[in-house]
């Protein structure tokens, strides 16, 4: 009985799934891109070695993959550094969504309604919750979340609060929201290129 259960859990939690959950957890906890890739490489190598020795992913990361990932993230980078990165990336994500709306409506002053804010909040909440548990959703599933969760929430919010604009968001504010996250992305890209050229990143 116990053996059957062990076999089931071992086969359902694959190395890829463990790596995907860890990646999502580390990214959402504000670990920078180069460090995430380094930690993933280290964990992937360990999982591979353990697999060759007949040990499954659960023997490596334990029963709670999220707790394992969180523990490693906390040990790897101080909260202050991770919080600073998140403070740059979260507004950037909101800014990108707003920029998409600016382009869609071809306006430099985007009317922000309760429905639009609810849409962003609902998509963000569901996406983060699901990705922390199962790893990255991918673009197609993200659109699906937007359609299945975001749109109904937006419609309900519009119905309750009215579809009149709460305020108009100028394009320059949207760009300002994106700027710190864009700087992070540039630094990540440069670090990635340096790493690919063989320079050790610490």
């Amino acid at each position: 009985m116990t053996d059957d259960r062990t076999t089931t859990t071992t086969t359902t939690t694959t190395d890829e799934r463990v790596l995907a959950i860890c990646r999502a957890n580390w990214e959402y906890r504000g670990i920078d891109d180069a460090t995430v890739r380094e930690m993933l490489a280290e964990l992937a190598a360990h999982l591979e070695d353990a697999g060759a020795a007949g040990r499954g992913p659960r023997e490596v990361v334990g029963d709670d993959v999220k707790a394992f990932a969180a523990s490693w993230a906390r040990a790897r980078q101080p909260l202050r550094r991770r919080a600073a990165r998140l403070a740059a990336l979260v507004p950037a994500m909101v800014g990108l969504l707003m920029l998409f709306s600016h382009l869609l409506w071809r306006t430099t002053a985007l009317p922000v309604t309760a429905g639009r804010l609810a849409l962003i909040a609902a998509i963000a909440a569901v996406t983060v919750t699901v990705e922390l548990r199962s790893g990255r959703l991918g673009l197609r599933k993200n659109w699906l979340v937007g359609a299945v969760v975001g749109l109904p929430v937006a419609l309900v919010a519009d119905r309750l609060a009215g579809d009149g604009p709460l305020f108009a968001l100028p394009l320059w504010v949207t760009l300002l929201l994106i700027a710190p996250g864009a700087a992070c992305a540039v630094v990540d890209a440069r670090t990635r290129r340096r790493a690919e050229r063989g320079v050790t990143v610490r």
Binding site: M39, E42, L43, H46, A50, R55, E59, V60, V61, G62, F68, S71, W72, R74, A75, R76
Partner: peptide
């Protein structure tokens, strides 16, 4: 118990 516990350490 959990091999990966060495990494945070």
């Amino acid at each position: 118990v959990s091999e990966g516990s060495i990494y945070p350490l």
